[in-house]
Amino acid sequence: MAGTNPTPTEYIQHHLQNLTFGLHPDNGWSIAHSAQEASDMGFWAVHLDTLGWSVGLGLIFLWLFKKAANTATTGVPGALQNFVELMVEFVDNSVKDTFHGKSKLIAPLALTIFCWVFLMNLMDLVPVDFLPMLAAKIGAMFGADPAHVYFKVVPTTDVNATLGMALSVFGLIIFYTIRTKGFSGFIGELTLHPFNSPNKLVQALFIPVNFLLEFVTLLAKPISLALRLFGNLYAGELIFILIAMIGLWQLPLHFTWAVFHILVITLQAFIFMMLTIVYMSMAVEKH
């Protein structure tokens, strides 16, 4: 913890605040020194910690897998190649089980999602004070008030990160739907289901109802995708923070929760991947 002894509320809020850089109405482009300043920045701000960690972890993923891909041999594989092949086969099988269309994008997309989300979630297992304290020390070196250096390590506890990915997937869903069924097919899917009737007049009456139902279903996809991951990790992180506040007894508790959290981390990465595949196959398959 940085600076003077904060109250539990302050401690938690400090931990849940991102390192924000943005356009403040009064200070111009700057790093936010408080939660208030960060929220004053509105949309024109970026969370440096979220972006930094997620991009860094993504690059680690790409670097590792690229290394394995470069040295991929048909002979006896090394440890890294073995691991990479295991992941690739696992993802490939998951995709083949669910997605029956032909697409060069789906499998790499699923692999990227799984590995990236997993790595981002994995940051949750780093004890909650380590990296923020380090950041506070570094911030202090550059003359910042350590109490106001915010640093949130787990990118998936930031709804921006999960929503960013979910909206990308959403875009792909719409793109693929239109590509396979045409624009009229896409509109038809939104308006002609689930209620339809051979009678034209009745059908016309059904269209608004159908649209309401289907549009909500469509929108629910990215939102549920984003909020599921965010909610799980945010809650997990919050419990880690609460455990970190109780003194010496945090050690066994932290260990127990971390062990349990390993499951959540993997599971959420898998669910995000699996749902993406399912949504994409729904987009491509004809009814």
Binding site: N18, T20, G22, A38, S39, M41, G42, F43, W44, A45, V46, H47, T50, L51, S54, V55, G58, F61, L62, F65, K66, A69, K104, L105, P108, L109, L111, T112, W116, P155, D158, V159, N160, A161, L163, G164, M165, L167, S168
Partner: peptide, 23 residues
């Protein structure tokens, strides 16, 4: 707060997927 991070994340995501698909 919903902010530009979302866009940045989406761009990074797109890049990663593209790289993965390509290389």
């Amino acid at each position: 707060n919903l902010n530009l991070t979302l866009v940045g994340q989406a761009i990074a995501f797109a890049f990663f997927v593209w790289f993965c698909m390509k290389f």
